[in-house]
Design a protein around this nucleic acid. Structure first.
Lengths: 212, 212
DNA sequence: GTCTATATTCCGATAGAC
DNA sequence: GTCTATCGGAATATAGAC
């Protein structure tokens, strides 16, 4: 997994903050939400993260690290874009079943309320994810695994939109919506696989299930 | 227009609340945001809306009224589904240029923080919009104006996803992203029109530009 | 590193005058 | 219907002991 879970308070705070952001939103979650779960005081969180903005940025930087690590590992193993996309969809499917939304879906609506440093970090995270998905799509199209019209960048934006919004909507209307939406999109892309065929880890067994 | 703008304090509060929800999110905006703009006291808002939840529900009910009114008028005038979708895309294009996001994109991420009454209202609003877009798509497909595979309901969810997410992302990355994403989707649908050809009211001239 | 204690600010909400 | 005044609570953040 790459993480040292035993007694890494800083990382544990980040993990819980990540969870709370995806559950309640950045502005709605509080230091108490985290300190209660971890059975520490709010002041201990401030020791690691002097401001809430610094905590938010740390959550995003951790996600960036996971993405970078994911890309490096899969590039070295020569794993194609389509298989990487399978992992992405599987991760979102897991989140849909856990009633969790993604970081982009949680943070971009509140963008206007963030300070400049956090806004810049949000922008970097969004760009990195879009670039990754675009690269995967382009590679998969060249390899004949997927088929679509237009630039890979525009298509990536549409794929990400479907993933992001499906989490927002399936939390309200049920996981079946996620399956129908994504299967529809996969068929459009000419993929020979469907959502239900992907590995489905049980919700609750992992805190992190995004890129790792 | 259908609204009496002069001295309808209740409605004016709703309009500003709508704007603030789309700008900062429901949890991040405060009674002071509205009372300052209107130059009244917070207590005056509490007279019309005893709780914040009641204000949030009023904002959504107003949007529901606009949608219902829109559908009735366009049905009576025998305006086809494709033309109704043109209006929807134009409204979102306007919002993208005004750096505003839509109600669904603003409210669904915070869904878990709402009380039961507000959650139910969010659910109703999402369902009504999805039904409308699905009906438009089905009618347009039957009329030979648009072409797509699968059920109109699933396709509507994908269309709404693209619209919703394009507002979230174009506020961060620029309006060009909205144009590229939506034009890409319109071409997929076999539409003979593009975003830039739609009527583009100048930002700031209307507070409401959704369904009316 | 984590604690107690507290400063400060802001929020939603209510009471009661006018 | 709108105001002033205020309550009770919660939030972020800081100071200083251990």
């Amino acid at each position: 997994m790459g993480y040292n879970w035993q007694k890494d308070t800083r990382l544990e705070i980040i993990v819980h903050a990540d969870t709370m952001i995806r559950k309640k939103g950045f502005n709605a979650f509080s230091y108490s939400d985290i300190s209660t779960i971890m059975d520490i005081r709010n002041a201990a969180i401030h020791y690691y993260f002097p401001t809430k903005s610094s905590l938010g940025r740390a959550v995003m930087q951790e996600e960036m690290l996971r993405l970078t690590s994911f890309r490096r590992r899969h590039a070295l193993a020569a794993i194609g874009g389509e298989d990487q996309l399978k992992h992405l969809v599987a991760a979102f499917y897991y989140n849909a079943r856990a009633h969790a939304i993604c970081l982009m879906g949680a943070l971009t609506p509140e963008f206007a309320t963030f300070d400049e440093e956090m806004q810049a970090t949000v922008r970097r995270l969004c760009t990195a994810i879009q670039e990754w998905v675009a690269d995967c799509l382009e590679e998969a199209r060249t390899a004949g695994k997927l088929r679509f019209e237009g630039s890979a960048e525009d298509r990536a934006a549409l794929v990400i939109s479907a993933l992001l919004a499906s989490l927002l909507l399936s939390r309200i209307e049920g996981t079946e919506l996620f399956e129908r939406m994504l299967d529809r999109m996969l068929e459009d892309l000419g993929a020979d696989w469907r959502v239900r065929q992907l590995e489905k880890p049980e919700p609750g067994t992992h805190i992190y299930y995004s890129f790792t």
